[in-house]
């Protein structure tokens, strides 16, 4: 997903949120009323799929292993020598290659779209992307923090 280049001022003030930024909050938070009427929600399992389920899968382990294996450790050397500079110039693609494992998981959850508010792309999140409709994602995934002083 596209992330803007950090500039000195990008954290000056909060960025107004798009739907993609707040979707977890909308689905997970809010007042809960006990005696609700059940309605069918088409596609909700895609929106609520829990990242943790995916992360714990063998599939994901293999992707992490692959991503770690791909790292060019010579390049990671902290000394800012010339060989390193040349290496990073010639392997400009390394970053996009390794960003695969985590991003791939994320795309399954949000459809990968930064919200651009153009309502017409909603349908692409419906059933075909469903991976799992396990009920185990409904638990609260938050913990409350408060200073204990």
């Amino acid at each position: 997903m596209a992330v803007g280049t950090p500039s000195s001022g990008y954290l000056e003030r909060p960025k107004p949120s798009g739907l993609a930024d707040v979707i977890e909050v909308i689905l997970d938070k809010g007042l809960v009323i006990d005696a609700y009427v059940r309605v069918s929600l088409i596609g909700i399992e895609i929106l609520t799929i829990d990242a943790r389920i995916v992360i714990a899968s063998v599939d994901t382990y293999l992707r992490f292993a692959e991503a770690v294996g791909r790292l060019n450790l010579a390049e990671a050397d902290d000394s800012q020598g010339l060989p390193e500079l040349m290496e990073s110039m010639t392997s400009g693609g390394a970053k996009s290659k390794t960003s695969g494992a985590l991003e791939a998981v994320k795309e399954k959850i949000t459809g990968g779209d930064d919200d651009d508010d153009d309502g017409d792309d909603d349908e692409k999140k419906t059933p075909s992307r469903s991976r799992r409709s396990s009920g185990s994602s409904s638990g609260s995934s938050s913990s409350r923090r408060r200073k204990s002083s």
Partner: peptide, 11 residues
């Protein structure tokens, strides 16, 4: 209706 399309109605 008793059915909501989640992706649209979340918005």
């Amino acid at each position: 209706s008793g059915t909501l399309v989640a992706a649209r109605e979340v918005r």
